[in-house]
Amino acid sequence: MQQLVTGIQQVGIGVTNIDEAWPWYRKFFGTDIPVFDDEAEATLMTPYTGGNVHSRRALLALNLSGGGGFEIWQFKSRQPKKCDFDIQLGDFGINAVKIKCKDVQKTYHQFKNLGNKTLSELHELPNGELTFWTKDPYHNLFQIVKGNSWFKKGSHFTGGVCGAMIGVSDIDAVLPLYTIALGFEEVIYDKTGTFTDLDDNQKFRRVLVRKKQKDIGAFSRLFGHIDIELIQSIDRKPRKIYDDRFWGDPGFIHLCFDVTDMGSLQEKCEELGYPFTIDSASSFDMGEAAGQFSYIEDPDGTLIEFVEAHKLPIFEKWGWFINLKKRNHNKPLPNWMLKTMSFKRVK
């Protein structure tokens, strides 16, 4: 099967102040490599910003140990609107972001030593592995899990993003998007009931699907495996997390996959009833980086982004960029080349 999706490139996180948010993410998740820091108008996103063009600042930061990054996103032309209700698991949208580590118990104590006051207890997942939960200063929920794919030995105790928990109304309806179009081959668990790791008496159905890391795609070794957990509330009627709010408002605004062939992916998505709602159509400049991007919506309106990278900065102050359009899209970049991004590290 053609590998169209090679990893999670990033999760978009809407914040009110990037300069305040990024140090927290560096401290706890090691996302200290800036890929770009760009201010511009989001001209193509008007379907999700009230029909008006808004200006924004966006900063993409990675953890070179492995995993996807954070696109930390801030409106510059309007006051962001926070969610006016307490988000519960099963609400429609991205409920939590999964962060990988090598040792969950050790990482738990490292978080405690750093003064994190939002930690849950250690719990077992439905497959028996350990996990714990934490929140950032903006009440976004993160789940720490054991990761099985790593790129570079790093000093930080976590890697980057390895997945997400997404609230849906009907798991069976949305599952083909991941298994057929996006190529998730393995079902890790499919359980219905109450769960101790959720610290909740509510009943859910939970399905975790995994896409293993393969050496296909420029950044596949860096991004590693992907875990998507779909969660469906059985006992209550969930709410849409971004109801009456804009893309870019505080919270998890989108989940972004790195892709190798946008045209083929578009065909697969359309066959399943997921047309592109946004399509940059050609290369789109993000300051130091460039690529083609598109969006689809899942049946509950959660935004899924796809990016086919065209240009990557290595030593931009010396004018060294990688032109990915001139390479075989399925061929991984040499490890040494990706590791040179460590020279951009921000402490």
Results as ranks from 00 to 15, higher is better:
residue 150 W to E: 07
residue 94 I to A: 02
residue 108 Y to M: 01
residue 119 L to H: 02
residue 148 N to V: 10
residue 108 Y to L: 01
residue 137 P to A: 06
residue 90 G to L: 09
residue 130 L to T: 10
residue 99 I to G: 05
residue 97 V to Q: 02
residue 99 I to Y: 11
residue 114 L to W: 06
residue 134 T to W: 04
residue 155 S to I: 15
residue 144 I to E: 05
residue 86 D to H: 11
residue 108 Y to S: 00
residue 140 N to R: 08
residue 103 D to I: 02
residue 94 I to Y: 08
residue 150 W to Q: 04
residue 140 N to I: 01
residue 123 H to E: 13
residue 99 I to T: 04
residue 97 V to Y: 02
residue 128 G to T: 01
residue 99 I to E: 10
residue 153 K to S: 11
residue 119 L to I: 04
residue 81 K to N: 13
residue 126 P to Q: 06
residue 124 E to P: 03
residue 111 F to K: 02
residue 78 R to H: 09
residue 83 C to T: 15
residue 91 D to F: 04
residue 81 K to Q: 15
residue 148 N to Y: 12
residue 137 P to E: 12
residue 144 I to S: 08
residue 136 D to V: 00
residue 106 K to D: 11
residue 88 Q to I: 03
residue 79 Q to H: 07
residue 88 Q to P: 11
residue 153 K to V: 04
residue 149 S to T: 15
residue 109 H to R: 07
residue 128 G to Q: 11
residue 80 P to S: 05
residue 110 Q to F: 05
residue 99 I to R: 09
residue 91 D to N: 11
residue 117 K to Y: 08
residue 108 Y to Q: 03
residue 111 F to I: 05
residue 111 F to P: 01
residue 128 G to S: 13
residue 107 T to H: 05
residue 108 Y to R: 05
residue 89 L to C: 14
residue 103 D to T: 10
residue 105 Q to H: 14
residue 141 L to G: 02
residue 92 F to L: 11
residue 118 T to I: 08
residue 112 K to S: 08
residue 134 T to A: 03
residue 106 K to T: 15
residue 149 S to F: 06
residue 111 F to E: 02
residue 150 W to A: 04
residue 111 F to V: 10
residue 115 G to V: 06
residue 112 K to V: 00
residue 79 Q to C: 04
residue 88 Q to D: 15
residue 91 D to V: 04
residue 129 E to C: 07
residue 87 I to Y: 06
residue 140 N to L: 03
residue 105 Q to F: 04
residue 131 T to A: 09
residue 96 A to S: 15
residue 151 F to E: 06
residue 125 L to F: 06
residue 155 S to E: 15
residue 126 P to F: 02
residue 148 N to K: 15
residue 123 H to N: 07
residue 109 H to P: 01
residue 125 L to C: 02
residue 140 N to G: 02
residue 114 L to G: 07
residue 120 S to T: 08
residue 136 D to K: 01
residue 126 P to M: 07
residue 144 I to M: 06
residue 78 R to K: 14
residue 147 G to D: 07
residue 118 T to C: 05
residue 121 E to C: 02
residue 135 K to T: 11
residue 152 K to A: 11
residue 130 L to N: 14
residue 152 K to T: 12
residue 145 V to F: 02
residue 113 N to F: 01
residue 86 D to Q: 13
residue 94 I to Q: 07
residue 123 H to F: 12
residue 93 G to N: 04
residue 93 G to F: 06
residue 78 R to T: 09
residue 127 N to E: 10
residue 156 H to F: 13
residue 116 N to K: 00
residue 126 P to H: 01
residue 128 G to K: 12
residue 134 T to G: 00
residue 89 L to D: 14
residue 154 G to C: 10
residue 93 G to K: 01
residue 134 T to K: 00
